[in-house]
Design a protein around this nucleic acid. Structure first.
Lengths: 236, 236
DNA sequence: GAGGGTTTGTGCACTCGTGCACAAGCTCGG
DNA sequence: CCGAGCTTGTGCACGAGTGCACAAACCCTC
């Protein structure tokens, strides 16, 4: 009798993927799926998928598989998609706009309740289509926007210089979860959770592995020890 | 005598952060830094930082700390920032534009050699400021753009439906590293490395923890077991 | 030149994540 | 009603990552 709570972080990070894949299956009219199929579509090992799902409870049927509708619902409930999450976005540059226009938010329970920017040329403009349209407020009205919309999640898409300041004001206003796109390490109280997405870092990790691969193949061609990397110079 | 190669993945993922923080220190005129300080600025444990850096070699001085300039160079070399990495971006929506305009690319060795989009209204337009300006090519010219620019890294910022197709064409044309922003699990050959950034997933992870926190505090207020969630209601 | 203070580099132990392999349990046909 | 054939759920072992704690090594002062 495992206590339902305390799902491993690694599992939580994968649940949204399963949920997305399963939603696709629902649209395709599939009603039952095996761990093998779902794992393949999600790009993970089937044993890991079963263990992940077992943390939510025992919703599969041995010899058959999982009921797609039931599984979608259970994952949605665990992730909190069943309720609606107000989100506020600071910084309406290209990145902020990409988020404001992102179609997948509504269906996953997120609702943008405020856009903020410091640029007077942007303040007052409207982004987002149809019912999701939102006017951009001045960044100085942050506290008021948070008070009105009561967002639990704040997105920081402002330049690095102002990220910490916006973060401080968010947390002071009661925002307890922050998604940070600015390339700085935010300092926050323990009660606040921060997740970071750094585009340059991701590219650099790819570049590193790319370089490793090239050095490896280089070494297979000409078998020279790399002891003398004195002349660093141009890698043309 | 550890063999220089085979740096742990977890370390590789942090090197870009150290590099960024150190670059900031250089700009501030700092010449020497201790593991304690650098770790604090990078948001990690100091022992972990020292172990990370030890994988590059022994570039610190006991009793003193690390020479900032030397460390910046060594990390840059390890990450491959010393050479230039051509990058091609497919999809010039808000996200693709955010990348095209991102200022931190040049300084980290990345150079955009091609922008691609399927929308005729966007093809032919120019994005990026000054010397980084780039004309948007038609997506059907992907192979030609890759042949001309010889990019090692391809960024996929197209809608989910066309992501796999673009990915296949990228890899067929010789791109061996892919950064995927589309919410799909790409299927590729083993020789190709894919990294994924999914905005909705990040928000859902935050929402999950937010919900956990609320349930925890709720339970402290009213101590009711959640055993009876039988009446789930309509799952139309 | 010697000793105190400081900081790096790393051995060690612990935790977490992953995947194999198999028992438990379901369905369906006879 | 029973057995064959699947598929789930999980015990177990292995590997990777993390952080404490300490020896090794350096600088500076006297």
């Amino acid at each position: 009798m495992t206590v339902r709570r305390s799902i491993p972080d690694a599992t939580v990070a994968r649940l949204p993927i399963y949920h997305r894949v399963l939603t696709g299956l629902v649209d395709s009219g599939v009603t039952t799926v095996s761990s093998e199929e779902l794992a393949a579509d999600s790009g993970v090992n089937s044993a890991m998928l079963r263990k992940d799902l077992s943390h939510l409870g025992s919703y599969g049927t041995r010899g058959v598989g999982y009921d797609v509708d039931l599984l979608v619902y259970q994952i949605a409930r665990e992730l909190g998609i069943t309720s609606e999450w107000p989100v506020v976005i600071a910084g309406v540059g290209n990145l902020g706009r990409a988020l404001a226009n992102y179609g997948g938010f509504d269906s996953r329970g997120f609702r943008i309740v405020g856009l903020l920017d410091a640029d007077p040329q942007v303040v007052g403009r409207t982004f987002g289509r149809g019912a999701r349209a939102q006017i951009v407020h001045d960044l100085s009205d942050l506290e008021q926007v948070v008070a009105d919309g009561q967002p639990a999640i704040g997105v920081i898409a402002v330049p690095a210089e102002s990220a910490q300041s916006v973060c401080d004001r968010f947390t002071a206003a009661g925002v307890s979860s922050i998604l940070n796109f600015a390339p700085v390490e935010l300092v926050v109280a323990d009660s606040v959770e921060v997740r970071k997405v750094d585009l340059a870092t991701e590219l650099q990790i790819l570049a590193f592995h790319e370089q490793q691969r090239r050095q490896r193949t280089d070494r297979e061609l000409i078998d020279v020890t790399d002891a003398n990397l004195a002349g660093v110079g141009d890698r043309t």
